Simulated assay, not measured.
Amino acid sequence: MDSLKLPRAEYQDRTETLLSHAHADGYDAVLLFGSLNIQYISGMYHLPTERPVVLAVTDKQMDIVVPRLEKEHAERDSFLIDDVHVYFDYPQGQPMDRVVTMCESLGIADSTIAVDTDGSPGRNGYQGPALSELLPGTVHTEDYITSMREQKSQSEIELIQEASTWATLGHRLLQERIEPGRRPIVVSTEVEAEASKTMLDTLGDRYEMMNWSAPMMCKFTTGEVTTRPHSVDQTTRIQSGDTIVTIVKPHVSGYTTELERTLIVGEPSEEQRHYFEIMRESQEIAIEAIKPGVEYSTIEQEVLNYYEEQGVSEYVQHHIGHNIGLEGHERPFLDLEYNGEIQPGELYTVEPGFYVPDVGGFRHSDTIVVTEGGTEMLTNYPRQISELTITTNA
Rank of each mutant, 00 (worst) to 15 (best):
residue 178 I to T: 10
residue 181 G to I: 00
residue 181 G to V: 02
residue 181 G to M: 00
residue 184 P to A: 00
residue 185 I to F: 09
residue 186 V to F: 03
residue 187 V to W: 05
residue 187 V to T: 08
residue 188 S to R: 02
residue 188 S to W: 02
residue 189 T to I: 02
residue 190 E to Q: 11
residue 191 V to P: 01
residue 191 V to L: 02
residue 193 A to D: 09
residue 193 A to N: 09
residue 194 E to I: 05
residue 195 A to Y: 07
residue 198 T to G: 07
residue 198 T to N: 06
residue 199 M to T: 08
residue 200 L to M: 08
residue 203 L to A: 09
residue 207 Y to W: 12
residue 208 E to N: 12
residue 209 M to Q: 15
residue 209 M to A: 14
residue 210 M to E: 15
residue 210 M to H: 15
residue 212 W to V: 14
residue 212 W to C: 09
residue 212 W to P: 06
residue 212 W to I: 13
residue 213 S to A: 15
residue 215 P to K: 13
residue 215 P to V: 12
residue 216 M to L: 11
residue 216 M to K: 09
residue 219 K to G: 14
residue 222 T to K: 00
residue 224 E to P: 07
residue 227 T to C: 02
residue 230 H to V: 09
residue 231 S to G: 10
residue 233 D to N: 13
residue 235 T to E: 06
residue 238 I to S: 04
residue 239 Q to N: 15
residue 239 Q to M: 14
residue 239 Q to R: 15
residue 242 D to G: 00
residue 243 T to I: 14
residue 243 T to W: 08
residue 244 I to E: 10
residue 245 V to T: 08
residue 246 T to S: 09
residue 246 T to R: 11
residue 247 I to G: 11
residue 247 I to H: 08
residue 248 V to N: 12
residue 252 V to C: 08
residue 252 V to F: 04
residue 253 S to L: 05
residue 254 G to M: 00
residue 256 T to V: 11
residue 257 T to K: 08
residue 258 E to W: 11
residue 258 E to K: 15
residue 259 L to K: 08
residue 259 L to D: 12
residue 260 E to N: 10
residue 261 R to L: 12
